[in-house]
Amino acid sequence: MRLLLIEDDAQSAAYVADGLGARGHEVEIEADGQRGLDRALVEPFDLLIVDRLLPSRDGLVIVSALRDAHVDVPVLMLTALGSVEDRVIGLEGGADDYLAKPFALSELIARVDALARRRDPAPPIRLQLADLTLDRLSREVHRGDVWIELQPREFQLLETLLLQAPNVVTRTMLLEQVWRFRFDPGTNLVESHMSRLRAKIDRGGDRPLLHTIRGEGYAAFSA
Rank of each mutant, 00 (worst) to 15 (best):
R2M: 06
L3P: 05
D8L: 06
D9H: 15
A10T: 15
A14W: 13
Y15N: 11
Y15A: 07
A22Y: 11
A22R: 08
R23F: 08
G24Y: 09
G24D: 03
E28D: 07
G36E: 07
V42R: 11
E43A: 14
F45T: 01
I49M: 03
D51T: 04
S56G: 00
R57V: 03
R57S: 04
R57G: 00
R67N: 12
V71S: 00
T79I: 08
A80W: 04
A80E: 11
R87S: 10
V88R: 14
L91G: 15
E92L: 09
D97L: 08
K101L: 13
A104N: 14
A104C: 14
A110W: 02
R117P: 00
D120V: 08
L129D: 06
L134K: 08
D135C: 06
R139N: 02
V141I: 09
D145P: 15
V146A: 02
V146L: 13
L150Y: 02
L161R: 09
L161K: 05
L162F: 06
L162G: 00
A165Y: 06
V169D: 09
V169S: 07
T172Y: 09
L174Y: 06
E176W: 00
Q177A: 14
R180T: 15
T187E: 12
L189Y: 12
R203P: 11
D206Q: 08
P208S: 07
L210I: 13
I213N: 09
R214G: 14
E216T: 03
A219I: 11
